[in-house]
Amino acid sequence: MRLIVSTSGRGPMFDGRALGALNRYVDHLEEELAEDGRTILLGELDRVLKTQTPYYTTRIEVIDRHTIWDNRVIYGPWLAGIGSRNYPVTKFKGYDHWTVTRDKLNTRKRGIGERLLRRYTGRM
Results as ranks from 00 to 15, higher is better:
R17D: 03
R123P: 00
P54H: 14
G76M: 07
G111S: 03
I74N: 04
Y75F: 11
G122N: 05
V100Y: 03
Y87S: 10
L42Q: 13
R115G: 01
A18M: 09
A34N: 14
M13Y: 08
T90C: 04
G16E: 07
R118N: 00
Y120S: 05
K50V: 12
T90K: 11
G113M: 02
N106P: 00
R17C: 01
N106S: 13
L33K: 11
M1W: 12
R24V: 14
R47V: 11
N71E: 15
V26L: 10
S6Y: 05
R65K: 15
T121R: 13
G76N: 04
S6V: 05
A21M: 06
E31Y: 12
H28V: 08
G83N: 05
S84D: 00
A80D: 04
T107F: 05
R108T: 00
D15E: 05
R108P: 00
L3S: 08
V73Q: 13
H28W: 10
W69E: 15
V89C: 03
L29G: 00
R24I: 10
K104G: 02
T101V: 08
Y120E: 11
D96A: 10
E32N: 06
L105M: 08
Y25N: 09
R102C: 00
D103C: 01
A21D: 06
R72T: 06
W78C: 00
Y75T: 09
S84N: 00
R2Y: 13
E114H: 01
E44C: 07
H28K: 13
V26C: 04
I63T: 04
Y55Q: 09
L3I: 15
D103P: 02
L79M: 12
H28F: 04
N71P: 01
W69H: 13
K91M: 03
V89N: 11
Y55A: 09
L41F: 14
N71S: 15
R2A: 14
E35P: 02
N86R: 05
R38K: 15
D103K: 11
R59H: 15
M13F: 12
N86M: 08
V62A: 14
R123N: 04
I4A: 05
K93M: 04
G37V: 08
V73L: 06
K104N: 06
Y75D: 07
L41V: 09
R10T: 15
L33S: 11
R119I: 04
E30H: 11
S6W: 02
R38N: 05
V48L: 03
N86E: 10
L116Q: 11
W78D: 00
K93F: 02
L42M: 14
T58G: 11
R110A: 03
Q52R: 14
K109F: 02
N23C: 10
R24Q: 15
D15P: 02
D27A: 15
R17E: 04
G76D: 08
I60K: 03
L117M: 04
Y25L: 14
F14L: 07
T101A: 06
P54M: 03
I82V: 15
L33H: 10
R85K: 05
V89G: 01
L49Y: 13
S84H: 07
T57C: 11
K104D: 01
R115V: 01
G81N: 01
P88T: 02
R24P: 14
M1V: 12
V62S: 13
N86V: 07
M124W: 14
T99A: 14
E114M: 00
P88M: 06
S8T: 14
Y25K: 07
R72Y: 06
H66N: 02
G9M: 10
F92Y: 03
I82R: 05
T7Q: 12
I112P: 01
T39K: 11
N71M: 14
